[in-house]
Design a binder for these strands. Sequence first.
DNA 1: CTAATAGTGTCTATTAGACAGTATGTT
DNA 2: AACATACTGTCTAATAGACACTATTAG
Lengths: 274, 274
Amino acid sequence: MVKRYNTEEEFLKDYDSSKYKKLSMTTDILIVSVSNEEVDNYRKTDKKKMSILLVKRDNYPFKDKWCLPGGFIDIDEDLDESPKRILKKETNVDNIYLEQLYTFGSIKRDPRMRVVSTSYIALIDKNRLINNLSNNASWFDITFYEEKNNIVDIVLDNGNTTISFKLEKVLREQTTDRYSFKILENNYLAFDHPLVILAGIERLKNKIEYTDIVFNMMPEYFTLGELQQVYEVILGKKLLDPAFRRIIANKVVKTTKMKTGGGHRPSYLFKYKK
Amino acid sequence: MVKRYNTEEEFLKDYDSSKYKKLSMTTDILIVSVSNEEVDNYRKTDKKKMSILLVKRDNYPFKDKWCLPGGFIDIDEDLDESPKRILKKETNVDNIYLEQLYTFGSIKRDPRMRVVSTSYIALIDKNRLINNLSNNASWFDITFYEEKNNIVDIVLDNGNTTISFKLEKVLREQTTDRYSFKILENNYLAFDHPLVILAGIERLKNKIEYTDIVFNMMPEYFTLGELQQVYEVILGKKLLDPAFRRIIANKVVKTTKMKTGGGHRPSYLFKYKK
DNA sequence: CTAATAGTGTCTATTAGACAGTATGTT
DNA sequence: AACATACTGTCTAATAGACACTATTAG
């Protein structure tokens, strides 16, 4: 028989929250930045790559595998505060652009117990935090190859270790562009983190076209060539100079500063116009 | 002192998941459809409105207030299965378009205890489920007014009851189009469900432009006029006929069937071209 | 005939794509 | 001088916006 209450206070006083089985939640963060790879030609500019921060696990489960920074949320912590706390711990920097990605909650995604995880994407200019990384964290350059038949091949490299995994884009019925992903190969990344990485890249690819989020990955001053390279590396294709400059023209301000010393014509430095 | 393990099996056998405080999770579903409002003029076509399904709470907390259909997820149920189960219970229909929206997890969103909720949006042609609604569920027509100074006013009406609430769109720093929302007025909707509704509408507005999700809300056969009205009601603005027809031309197939009896020129019925 | 919606033709404005050209610092 | 990048001009193609026109039915 169900007891009847007359006021919400009365009900809450009596409420026994233990009658349902509870679960744990974590947040995982895909921290994305851009790195420069020097080229052995004094004239050529550095090659830009997209890179993400991974952490080596020193405990079970998935001991010695790499994973995204993350952790359990506290019972008295807002969900959105959790990634901020982790970001601060991992990078020692505040005020990082952060956006919720997706919540993964299949039953067996964690071998320990039922864990639902909300993933976030964070964008940062890597130079803001050089030498402040926590011990077992490392930047991995990321390259992705979209093969035919909807297979996506992703390779991560931090100079010492190469990790790769494959995913299949599965088209969902009743809609054109909505995909779900299935992990085909994955040997070195813990949990379902390949899914988070792909979700993040897709989000970034989309949003770079109609928002200003790129500038969270740029230093204060940058050349248009550098900015264009970041677009190219995220979109995975070359852009035409005049078209690119037309489009970002009203998002940037030209300064009087210049970048010289490149073995070619120097270029003006620009700032983000808010 | 931390015990050391040599294998993952050993570790898992010993793992005590009770050392962290756990929490409960729910899923909430914004079920969106389109309704026809008859006009007292035999020549005029029905006026289309967007409508959402709400449920009247018969228990505390928020007793007698309206809320989105939802419920606790089972400990042994995939997160994505939960909204399907609820949808089936509430509408008695399978195979409904469903997409994850956002996960809300502020500490005090539920007065009973710590509850994190993942929200989903479902799109359906209301005619598929007429007379199969559960007892205390009801369709509310929804109208939203975007006022100046970033205030959004939303009015819900099911014929008997009118619910309204106001939200403020708060522009987040460092990016152009990303908003967070703050509830300004809300007397009759339970929990933080106004946020879910707005998140869903925004998602729908966006995706209708670059995906085919509208067709989940359409019957098998429809006129282009009807389809255009659905676009207009979702986007909140009038569209020009020729432009609209150009754009959807390759998404639909003309059939030989016609819709007659409207007091004006009959129109061809179209089908969705997959 | 009339009111109301259905459907099309076409002009114009805007935006995107392509290519070729000029400019300039370092070795 | 040569290379590599910086930056611009301009033509063309594609797309979006606007308006006007014709078509067709129930009453």
